[in-house]
Simulated scan of single mutants.
Amino acid sequence: MSVDYDWLTLDDDEEVVWSGQPSSESLYGAYLFGVPMILLFGLGIVVIASAYLRQQNTDYLITTNGVYKKTGIFSRAVTEIEFEKVQNTSFSVGAIGRYFGYGDVMISTAGGSGVEMTLRGVEDPQAVQKQLSRRVKRAQGETADAADGESKADVLDEILVELRAIRQSLDAGTGRGGDASADDRHP
């Protein structure tokens, strides 16, 4: 992606595969609450302005290695979760979000207490969650393969060798070389 994120430091082999912000439609609740407050108390401007600034100053990124969330109006907070640490991903869509096509994507980590990161108000949260889930599975599969030093084919080959050895020992135990009839096997 061509957008430059001055708050983000990527590894040499890491690339941004998805980026987003809270949907502008997610501000409708602030407008709905803020406009009457402008008329009644004058505080509605603060409600609307703070919701708008929060939305504009929040960025979400999925890279080839992890997921990032940047928040902050006057200061900046960046949270990163590497795919290897992700335990579960889910999404939720409220009634208004369902109508306007936005919702939340939640990420839980192994060893964490509940949801560690929430991408709030993203457009098409189901598609974002699916993409995130696929990347997590791919990363965790690569990690497991690298840790074991074996591929699935290697594991299946080992199982086949063990099964052949078991069959040979059973055949040797019957003394017939595997020619036992069905009647001989069952007393």
Rank of each mutant, 00 (worst) to 15 (best):
M1G: 11
M1K: 05
D4Q: 12
Y5P: 04
D6I: 06
W7K: 04
W7T: 00
T9E: 14
L10H: 02
D11R: 10
D11H: 10
V17G: 03
S19L: 05
G20M: 00
G20Y: 05
Q21G: 07
E25R: 15
Y28A: 12
Y28F: 15
Y28M: 14
G29I: 11
A30H: 03
Y31E: 03
F33P: 08
F33T: 14
M37V: 08
L40I: 08
F41K: 13
G44R: 01
G44P: 00
G44K: 02
I45R: 08
V46L: 12
V46D: 15
I48C: 02
S50Y: 13
A51T: 06
L53D: 10
R54A: 10
R54H: 06
N57M: 03
I62M: 11
T63M: 03
T64R: 06
T64F: 05
K69W: 03
K69I: 08
G72H: 02
F74T: 11
V78I: 00
V78S: 00
T79K: 07
E80L: 07
E80C: 06
E80A: 08
E80R: 06
E82P: 09
E82I: 12
F83N: 04
E84T: 12
Q87R: 14
Q87N: 07
S92K: 01
S92C: 04
V93C: 05
V93Q: 07
Y99L: 14
Y99W: 15
F100V: 06
Y102C: 00
Y102M: 06
I107K: 02
S108M: 08
S108Y: 08
G111H: 00
S113F: 15
G114R: 02
G114H: 05
V115G: 02
L119M: 08
L119N: 02
G121C: 02
D124Y: 02
Q126W: 06
V128L: 01
Q129F: 05
Q131T: 01
L132E: 01
S133C: 13
R138E: 13
Q140G: 05
Q140C: 00
Q140N: 02
G141N: 04
A144M: 06
D145K: 13
A146R: 09
A147N: 05
D148E: 15
D148G: 15
A153S: 14
A153P: 08
A153I: 12
L156T: 07
L156Q: 09
L160N: 15
L160G: 15
V161F: 07
L163P: 03
L163G: 05
I166S: 07
R167Q: 09
R167F: 09
R167P: 03
Q168M: 03
S169P: 07
A172V: 05
R176I: 06
G177E: 00
A180T: 13
A182S: 13
D184Q: 04
H186D: 10
